[in-house]
């Protein structure tokens, strides 16, 4: 049973991400009560939207959140170039293949690297989402008739009982 859901389609920029976070944190607080992990959940949305902002070829995204009894799901859909879409999918597969120690090392390697991502990102977004306890990241890519790709990134995170702050 869905307790709360929102879907947005349209342009996104760094200020728009702040608007989403304000709204999402308020909704989570209202639906779940005070918790120590509300910012962590919002940080997952920040990373997804940041990816969409950097890689969407038309600056538009479709962003959905769904709160169910025991889980929170974020879904981001955007158009991307073939190279960016394939890189995103490969990156997610690589991260899923790592254990905790591997992800920890990958984080240290990446944050200390002088190299930025293709669009100026740190290359840490998906890694941070998995390290911080998301159940899964599912990346689907679909080729369009105009040879662009649609990327659908789906994150699920458990809504475990937590100590109130």
């Amino acid at each position: 049973m869905i307790d709360n859901a929102l879907r947005y389609y349209g342009k996104i920029d760094e200020g728009g991400i702040v608007d989403f976070v304000d709204l999402l944190s308020g909704v989570l607080y209202k639906n779940l009560g005070p918790r120590k992990d509300i910012r962590k959940m919002c940080s997952f949305a920040i990373e997804l939207l940041d990816n969409g902002m950097r890689y969407s070829i038309d600056n538009r995204v479709s962003f959905t959140w769904t709160i169910e009894k025991d889980r929170l799901t974020f879904e981001l859909e955007n158009q991307a170039s073939e190279s960016d879409a394939l890189r995103l999918q490969n990156h997610a597969r690589e991260l899923h293949g790592m254990d905790d120690a591997g992800r920890r090392q990958a984080f240290q390697d990446q944050i200390n690297s002088d190299q930025l991502g293709a669009r100026g990102g740190a290359g840490l977004g998906l890694l941070q989402i998995l390290r911080k306890g998301a159940l899964s990241i599912d990346i689907q890519i679909h080729r369009q008739a105009d040879q662009t790709f649609v990327c659908v990134s789906r994150i699920q995170t458990p809504l475990q009982k937590t100590d109130k702050p």
Binding site: I17, V18, V21, R39, C42, S43, I46, E47, D50, I111, L116, G120, G121, A122, L124, G125, L127, Q128
Partner: peptide
Amino acid sequence: LPYFNSASMKGIL
């Protein structure tokens, strides 16, 4: 910093 993206994390570091 109440919220920051991972690119900012690198900058803060």
